[in-house]
Nucleic acid binder design. Structure first.
Lengths: 194, 194, 194, 194
DNA sequence: GATGAATGAGACTTCATTCAT
DNA sequence: GATGAATGAAGTCTCATTCAT
C-alpha cells in the first residue's frame, strides 16, 4: 500500500508539474526535463507513468476536465427546479474558474490550441451530461429557450472564461456582486422571454 | 513601385504562411523552415522582414487584430441608436468570426496562450474604442446595464468564440437563424430589464 | 569510481579537443560539432559538461593557466636566494612554453584576443603570487630594480612568448644554449646594475 | 582624380571599419554586414575592393604592418651610432604601440591567432630590414651580444606588447619615466656586458 | 561602380526519448 | 521501479557571398 501510494505520488507530482509549466510557458516551453525536475524525479521516470509527452498532457487534460465537472455538479440534484439547478451549476463553474486558476487556465489553453487531440477533447465532454439533461428539461418546461445546447453552453460558460482570463492577468476582478450580475445576464440570455 | 510590391508580397506571404501553420499545429510546431517553405522563400529571408520568430507572430497578431477591428465597425456610425449600432457591430463580429476562420482561430489561440507578449496584447486592444464609447452612451441612456466593460465584452464576444470553435471543428454550424437567436440572447444579457 | 572516471574522461576529452581545434583554426573556426567529433561524443553531450561554448573555452583557459602556474613553480622554494629562485621559475616557464606547445599557443591566443572574458582572465592570474612575492623580496634586497611588476613580467615572460611562436612555426629553435643566453638577457634586464 | 579618391575613400573606410570591429569583437564577430555598415557602404561593395573576407583582413594586416614599420624608422639614419640608432627605433616602436592603440592591438591579435595566413605574415616582415642591419653592425662592433635576431627581437619588441595590452585594458599605464626604464632594461638585455 | 535583397550552408543549442546500471 | 548520461533529430538564427538592377 505504501508502495502504491508512492507511485501515485510521483504520478500526480508529474501531472502537477506539467500543469504549472504548461500554464506558465505553454506546451512546447515545458520540456520534459523541467517537468521531471519540478516533480522531483528523473526524466526517464516520466516514461514509467506515461507513454510520452502527448500522453502526459492528454491524461492531465482528462483529469482536470473531470475535476472541473465534479465541481460543477456539487450540491446539484435533479429534483431542483430548472432555474435553481442551473444557478447552482453556474455558480459552481464560476467559482471553479475564479479559484482553481491553474486548472482553468490550462483548460482554456487546451481548448483553443491544437495541443490536445480531438479524440481526447471529445472524451473530456462526457461528464457534462447532467447539464445537458437540465437544459432538455428546461426547454420542455418552457423555461429555457429552444436553443442548441452549443449556444446555451456558449452563453453559460464562455463569458466566464473571458473574465477569468482578465482576472488572471490582473486586469479585472469579479467580486461577489459581479458574479451575481453575470449570472443574471446569463439567465436573461437563455431564459424564455415572457 | 514594382519593387515595393514585391517586398510587400514576400512579407505578407510570410504572414499568411505563419497564420496557416500556427493554426494547424500551434506556435511551437510551426518551425521557421516550414513557414519559409510555405511562403516560397528561404529560411534566412524571414529575417529580412522580421527580427525573429516572436516578432513575426507579434506582427501577425497585430495585423489580424486590426483587420478584425476594421471589420467590426464597418457600416457603424455614432449617429445610430445604441441598439442599432450594437446590432451592426455584433453581426460584423459574428460574420468575421464565422467567415474569417483562420484569422479568428489564430486570435483565439493567441488570447489563451502565453505565445503573445502582454504588451503586444494590450496594443491590440486600441482599436476597440468605438465599442466602449457605444456602451458608455448606452449606460447613460439607460438602455444598457451598468456593467463593467469587461463583463459586457465577455457576453458580446466570447459566446461567439466558442461557437466559432465548434463550427471550425465541424461539430456545429451557426446559420442565419442561429445568429439572430444568439444576438437576441446577447442583447437580453446586457440590455436593461424593464 | 569507474563511473566517475568515465565522466572525467569525456570532460577532458572535450577540453583536449577544444585545445587542438582552437589552436589550429581559432575560436570561431572550432565548431561545437567538430569538437564533439574529435572528442568522440555527440554534440549534445558537450552541454552535459559545459553551459555553452564560451563556458567551455573559459574552463579550458583556467585549467591550462593553472597547469602552467603549477609547472612554473615546480622545485621552487621561498628559501632560495632571489636569483636562484628566479632562475628556477624562469627555466620552468621557458620549458613549459617550449614543450607544452599546444597549451602555450592557446594561452597566447587567448591573451591577445577578445575570446576570453575579462573576469575569467583576471581569475587566471591568481596563481602567480609566488613570483610577485619573489620580486618584492628582490626589490627589498636591492637585487632587482624597483620596476613595476608589470614591467618585470613583460621582460620575464613575453620574450619567451615570441620565441615559442617562432619555434612553433618552425622558424627558429631555442636550444639549451639559447635558453641560457635568454635567461642571462632577462636577468640583465631586471637586475640592479652595480 | 576625384573618382579615384572616392574609390580610395571607400577602400580605406572599409579597412578602418574592419580594424575597429576585429579589435572589439575578434575576426569572426566582425561580420561583413557590420563592416559594410560601419564603412557606410553596401555589403556587396566590399567585393569590389577585396576578393573576400580573408583578403580584406590580409590587406589590412599588410597595411598596418607597413604603417608600423614606417613609424619605427622615423628619424633613424644608418649614420647614427648603434646605441643611438637603436634608441630612436625603440622609442618609435614604444610610442607607436602606446599611441596607435587600435593598430597595435590588431597586430597583436593577428600575430597570435591563425587568422592570418603564414605567407602574408612573412610578407609583413620585409620592412624590418634596417633593424636587422643595425643589429648586424652592433654585433660586429661588439656593442650588441651575438644573439640570434629572433632573440633580439623578442627582447626589443615583445615586452612592449605586453605593456601595451595592459595599458589598453586600463590595468597599467606606461608613462615617460616608465618608458625610459623599459628602454634601459631592453638595452641591458641585449648589450654586451663589460 | 554600387546596391541590397536573397540565400545555402552551417553555427549553436534544445529536447524527447532511450538504455545500461 | 528508478535513474541520469547520452544522443539523434531538429529548431532558431547568422553570415559570407551573389546577382539582378
Amino acid at each position: 500500500m505504501e508502495k502504491k501510494e508512492k507511485i501515485t505520488n510521483k504520478r500526480s507530482a508529474l501531472l502537477n508539474a506539467t500543469l504549472t509549466l504548461v500554464n506558465n510557458h505553454g506546451f512546447h516551453n515545458a520540456p520534459m526535463s523541467k517537468i521531471a525536475n519540478l516533480a522531483g524525479v528523473a526524466p526517464a521516470t516520466i516514461y514509467l507513468y506515461f507513454e510520452n509527452k502527448q500522453d502526459l498532457v492528454n491524461k492531465l487534460y482528462l483529469e482536470v476536465k473531470e475535476d472541473f465537472s465534479t465541481a460543477a455538479f456539487e450540491g446539484y440534484s435533479e429534483n431542483l427546479s430548472v432555474k435553481d439547478g442551473f444557478e447552482i451549476i453556474w455558480f459552481n463553474i464560476a467559482n471553479y474558474k475564479l479559484n482553481q486558476i491553474k486548472e482553468s487556465n490550462f483548460l482554456a489553453q487546451c481548448d483553443n490550441s491544437p495541443m490536445i487531440e480531438e479524440a481526447i477533447r471529445i472524451e473530456g465532454l462526457k461528464h457534462l451530461q447532467p447539464l445537458l439533461d437540465l437544459w432538455s428539461r428546461g426547454k420542455k418546461e418552457g423555461v429555457i429557450k429552444p436553443l442548441s445546447d452549443y449556444v446555451l453552453y456558449a452563453f453559460t460558460v464562455y463569458p466566464l472564461s473571458f473574465l477569468q482570463g482578465m482576472q488572471e492577468r490582473g486586469i479585472y476582478t469579479l467580486d461577489e456582486a459581479g458574479k451575481v450580475e453575470s449570472f443574471t445576464a446569463t439567465w436573461n440570455a437563455i431564459k424564455t422571454e415572457k
